[in-house]
């Protein structure tokens, strides 16, 4: 077993454990912490794949901003332990069916793919930061500008939503 494979299995186990813990935990803060574990593990996997810029962005934006926002809101609302109401009739069986169907579909697709997708260009490290910035500002410049518009809309939306109505 190569060291890389070992690191992969450790990180993958960490990610799956975190994801399971996200579902099993009763308190939202514990769920949020589990999700942070998943995200950090995924960042480690990105590093393993040589996508260092994405790894850093993953931790800075997901770990440092989005999840902090979640934790912040949980603290702000003083959200307690999840109460267990009886599932609505529609959520239980059809939901399970959906999950099983999805898992089956994914498993079938993966099983059908023959062999490993052998890496085409694994020679050296693709200087990902420079390459990404070139793509982002040349090939994907319009989508990129659109995302800035999206963020603007999101800021305005959040501000309007969070405002207390004047009474």
């Amino acid at each position: 077993m190569t060291p890389q494979l070992l690191i992969f299995f450790v990180l993958a186990a960490l990610a799956v454990l975190g994801a399971v813990s996200l579902i099993v935990q009763k308190h939202p803060i514990h769920s949020a912490l589990s999700l942070i574990v998943v995200m950090v593990a995924l960042a480690g996997l990105y590093l393993l794949m040589g996508a260092e810029f994405v790894a850093a962005v993953q931790i800075i934006v997901y770990g440092g901003a989005i999840m902090v926002l979640f934790v912040f809101v949980i603290m702000l609302l003083n959200a307690g332990i999840e109460e267990h109401t009886s599932l609505s009739k529609f959520a239980g069986p059809p939901g399970l069916l959906l999950v099983v169907a999805l898992a089956g579909f994914l498993a079938a697709t993966i099983a059908r793919s023959t062999g490993t997708v052998q890496a085409a260009a694994q020679t050296g490290t693709m200087s990902s930061t420079k390459g990404i910035s070139n793509m982002l500002f040349r090939d994907f410049v319009y989508p990129f500008e659109l995302t800035s518009f999206l963020i603007l809309v999101a800021i305005m939306g959040a501000t309007v939503l969070a405002q207390r109505e004047k009474s």
């Binding site: 942070i36 260092e52 810029f53 440092g64 902090v68």
Partner: peptide
Amino acid sequence: NIGILALFAITALGVYGVALAGW
């Protein structure tokens, strides 16, 4: 290659120590 970004990533996580301690 990502020196400064890695630093920011680590400091970005630093907020959890304080927030979770408070909570």
